[in-house]
Design a protein around this nucleic acid. Structure first.
Lengths: 122, 122
DNA sequence: CAAGAACTGATAATCGAGTATCATTTCTCC
DNA sequence: GGAGAAATGATACTCGATTATCAGTTCTTG
């Protein structure tokens, strides 16, 4: 296999995903390419340093990574395959939840349930 | 100090909190009582088994625990003190985010920012 | 008070995520 | 092609969270 281009392989796999991926998830999608787990971590770390990637925390899966140029969005976590899917749109009424004296600078929304594939397979 | 009632001490501290606590956070609130970290974990584990406690995942703090009898609510995570506060109320428009074929069974909302105390101290 | 069960705190052991290291391999630029 | 820099994969290592272990303590029931 060719080497020295593995980081590119890693990033392309992440760009092609339909949601944020953890280092392990990403690595498992690269089985067969010979890419080592260390290279996956290196590519992710560099991507974050260079500002092209962003680390996000969904639930139950630790830190995941996604391209930073995506619009504001949230995620759907499938309880069966444990994959996080990108969603589009946002919600209303967040401000009314903030207690007096608190200052909100951001928010995260995660929907839980079963994805299309897992729901049909069940 | 009296013993054999330490688990009760642990649970009372958790009930009195204004948000979910991790095992460490809970333990640190018990400094001075002589309760060991192992007893904290035991109390939490038992509470979950017995159905009085629930483990929740907020962000950036691993697993936290809270009484299970609380109303549906969400959390505010202070980026300075890293404490999670209970919120009251919920949001609108979640259903519209769900992709076709997906089934939503639950949701999590986390607001990020600074709490009253930290915002004033800054 | 006695005996056995349950509880406790300290700490060793385990586990997984992420990082550091190192010998090789590949690339770049001449 | 050659030299040095950068990248790579395997793996050892680190670090923190959680669990297991164990000797000593406390409780319960009579």
């Amino acid at each position: 296999m060719q080497r020295a281009k593995q980081q590119l392989t890693v990033l392309q796999a992440l760009m092609a995903a339909d949601g944020p991926l953890s280092a392990r998830e990403l690595w498992s999608r690269l089985s067969g390419t010979g890419v080592g787990i260390a290279t996956v971590y290196r590519a992710l770390q560099r991507g974050v340093e260079e500002g092209t990637l962003e680390s996000v925390e969904v639930l139950g899966g630790g830190v995941r990574y996604e391209p930073k140029d995506r619009e504001h969005h949230h995620h759907f976590l499938c309880s069966i395959c444990n994959h996080a899917f990108d969603l589009f749109g946002c919600v209303e009424g967040l401000e009314s939840l903030v207690p007096n004296g608190f200052r909100m600078t951001g928010h995260e929304v995660v929907l839980l349930g079963t994805c299309d594939a897992c729901g049909n397979a069940a």
